[in-house]
Write a protein that binds this DNA or RNA. Structure first.
Lengths: 335, 335
DNA sequence: TTGAAAGCGGTACCAG
DNA sequence: CTGGTACCGCTTTCAA
């Protein structure tokens, strides 16, 4: 139960100074091969590992990345986290995660101790004001965004407009003309650009197809299964229900399917349903969807960040791709 | 772009020593109310926040908790993480998450820098050898386990034997006699106690019901949707397929349901299916399941840990409960 | 109640 | 190529 060995213990054992140990163990140049070997041997014998706090204090770098998400227990965010963690761990960085719930204007990210513990920050679908963006840009913290564009901040971006356009066009190409949109608005500090862009893409597709836009067919599903369920119920209660539905997320699409089943209806026989994400369960329920390589979102963000940390600021966003996966929930309208 | 204010800046501004600032800001006793107010004002004006690395180095406490899971992007683990994060954040602790993949025997948790950054560790379904458990117990790191029992380590435990017993008994009570088990073994360093206990519970229930145990009806589903799918296919290919299936997880149950649908069969008309977890999608597909309050698993672990960190070592495991949620995937056997 | 000062365990600059 | 040493910013005795 003796306290862990310090750099000084290693220095004594190897018969060199702490400065040399520090250099040798970090693979810095200007260390004689023989010396390096001796130091490494001593460190190994003592089972020495540097204290991260001491090293952080002295160097100003923590080798830690913080990640802010609206919530930890959602399919999308856990995938993004996993993607980032894999890349970061390989590079020797640890991942600190935290949820940003409210939109208390006094709650700046930079004020959180957790951010101070990190060299960089990945923000995922968090609403960031222009002032806060400027604050972050001026800080020592590197920041990368996932899923939204923030001024002066590099990002892993999805072309949400196009995703929605393509999804809607898929329904159009099957012959649908009465197409509904189940969308949503983010909650709390969640970012609004995703629903806004997707709605715009939907509208653009309808317009391009020369179809009428019926506001009654645009409903809110809150980006949850339950919300999609309710939204679909409202749609089916209309005098003239839609023959196809584009849900902005697979979760909402699941809810929509559920409502159909509750009514002893089926997709695509009664209504076609398409979602976005390619959620793990989409395959199970046969949901047609716009696939997103969600794990890659996180991995790319991490790579971008590591590049920044190495001083390579190229200022290029990473664009991730999507594609249609046709399953059994979409088909031509009846008759 | 000036560097952030230090404790000394605050001390100067308040006209006191850094020692006093340190005490005042941490609400330690022996600080005159007037002094404390002055210090707080100065700190607020300067927008001062202590450097976590410095404070960690000086105090030996990091106010950070590490959490080890087999993987980050799985439904169960993200729920546990979320539960823990909520509790920890409220207590001023940050959460470091990392995935433990392989079972390289040289890969001790204690050797990871990430663990050194933390005051405590939550391990979830990780296989820990007795030696490693002893190492951890002797270290300065507090450890709490979730989902498995490790010698000398407090834990949030599920009575897996009983979960399986109850699930199986549900099928028995519906009149089934030919009941299959879709189980699995953990991968890599994942812990084996869950499948072992659940299998034992299944066997106990079958025995208690006076039913024959057919080894051909015990198959591996690898705790994944795909594995459950395959496992169910094997079962249905038997000369005498089961009339009911207990899957050790909802994911595997989803796969089983999928296989039934692929064969144009249905639950419970052709085969009853019950799972474990109450996965978010279980409701959607009407899966009967043994509910687990997964978020609570994480929250309880965090509370246990916080109690330890406050020096209250009571040595009592937390037992979390489960319960049957009957949906439409189980029913009496046909005829 | 307050202050002075000795660390905590590294890093990095400057000499040699 | 190596060593000495001044910090990094905060905590924590010990005295006053």
């Amino acid at each position: 139960m003796s306290s862990p060995p310090t750099i000084e213990d290693v220095a004594n054992r190897a018969g060199v100074s702490v400065a040399t140990v520090s250099r040798a163990l970090r693979d810095l140049p200007n260390v004689a091969p023989a010396t390096r070997a001796r130091v490494e041997a001593a460190a190994a014998e003592l089972d020495y590992r540097p204290d991260p706090s001491a090293s952080a204090l002295a160097s100003g770098r923590t080798k830690t990345i913080a990640m802010a998400v609206p919530m930890l227990d959602s399919w999308y965010f856990s995938k993004v986290m996993a993607g980032a963690e894999t890349v970061l761990a390989a590079a020797g960085y640890d991942l600190l995660v935290f949820a940003v719930h409210n939109d208390d204007p006094g709650d700046r990210l930079l004020h959180r101790p957790v951010v101070r513990r990190a060299d960089a920050l990945i923000v995922v679908d968090i609403d960031i004001s222009d002032e806060e963006a400027a604050e972050l840009a001026a800080s020592r913290i590197e920041v990368v965004a996932v899923g939204m564009k923030v001024p002066q901040m590099e990002a892993v971006v999805v072309d949400d407009h196009r995703v929605a356009f393509d999804a809607t066009m898929h329904l159009v190409s099957l012959g649908h003309t009465r197409i509904a949109l189940i969308g949503g608005v983010g909650e709390g500090r969640q970012q609004f650009s995703v629903p806004i862009e997707r709605r715009a893409g939907f509208v653009a597709a309808m317009t391009a197809a020369g179809l009428a836009l019926d506001e009654a067919l645009i409903v809110d599903g809150g980006f949850s299964v339950a919300g999609g369920h309710r939204a679909m119920a409202d749609l089916m209660d209309l005098t003239e229900p839609p023959t196809a539905v584009f849900a902005m997320s697979d979760e909402m699409a699941f809810g929509a399917l559920r409502e159909l089943w509750d009514r002893d209806m089926d997709a695509p026989a009664d209504v076609s349903v398409i979602g976005v994400d390619n959620h793990d369960v989409a395959d199970l329920v046969g949901l047609t969807t716009m696939q997103q390589q969600v794990v890659e979102h996180g991995a790319q963000a991490a790579r971008l960040l590591l590049r920044h940390l190495l001083g390579e600021r190229e200022g290029d966003d990473v664009h991730v791709h999507t594609g249609l996966i046709e399953r059994s929930s979409t088909g031509p309208p009846r008759r």
